[in-house]
Simulated scan of single mutants.
Amino acid sequence: MSGDRRGFAYALEPVRSVTAWEIDEIAGELAVLNQAARALQQECDALAGQFAAVRADIIAQRQAQAALDIAGQRRAHDYMLQVQVQLQAKVVALRAAEEERDAMYLRLIDARKFAESLDRDKEAQAGEHDQKVAKQGYQLSDDNWLQRIHWRKTT
């Protein structure tokens, strides 16, 4: 019964508004965290590609069975080690960013659940208000009917 709801004021409306703003804020922060996680994933992929390329070059040089260039091999291994260390650091940063993103997502879910519970509560309160208004209308109709019967009997 969602008819005329004049006179209905939901006491928790300010909380609903603040919760809606909080949901928007969390969603914005989540979007930023998702973008940062994607950027870190791309950096990890690029470093993994560099590592694979250098590894493939070293393997190709060894298979060519040319005279081994120890200094070149050492530089290549040092470079591989450097790329691997960078990759590990980026993977750690990526995991941290993903954990932060997941925590923010859980906050968003909790905020949405709270907002939904407030919406359900508001609808329940509005339903109670509608019943109260209907009851008052019925009582007014009964009173009018009783007055008319009394008026007809006296006239």
Rank of each mutant, 00 (worst) to 15 (best):
A37T: 00
E100L: 15
A93V: 09
D142G: 08
G49L: 02
A56S: 13
E99P: 03
Q65K: 03
L30E: 02
E22P: 08
E100K: 15
V133K: 09
A9C: 04
G3V: 10
I109T: 13
I26R: 00
D130R: 10
A93H: 02
R62A: 12
Q139I: 04
V32F: 05
Q82E: 13
G49R: 01
Q42W: 09
D78K: 10
R75F: 03
D142Y: 05
A67Q: 14
D121I: 12
L146T: 06
A60S: 10
A103M: 03
L81H: 11
R74D: 02
L94W: 02
R107G: 00
A31G: 05
D4R: 06
K113L: 13
L12W: 06
D119S: 08
W145A: 12
A48R: 09
E25R: 15
D119E: 12
A66K: 06
M1D: 11
Q42H: 05
D143H: 02
R62Q: 15
G127F: 14
F8D: 00
R38F: 03
I109W: 04
Q42P: 02
A39F: 04
Q42M: 13
N144P: 03
D130K: 08
A89C: 09
V83L: 12
I59L: 08
R95E: 13
F8E: 00
H129I: 11
A89K: 12
A97G: 01
A48P: 03
C44N: 05
Q35F: 03
A11Q: 02
R55D: 08
V83C: 05
G7C: 00
R62P: 00
L106K: 15
Q147K: 11
Q86A: 14
A93Y: 00
D69E: 01
R152F: 05
D119N: 14
A11G: 04
A66D: 07
G3Q: 04
K122W: 03
K122V: 02
Q86C: 11
E123P: 01
W151P: 01
R152H: 06
Q147I: 10
A103Y: 01
L30C: 03
A134L: 10
L106Q: 14
L146H: 07
T19L: 08
F8H: 11
T155D: 01
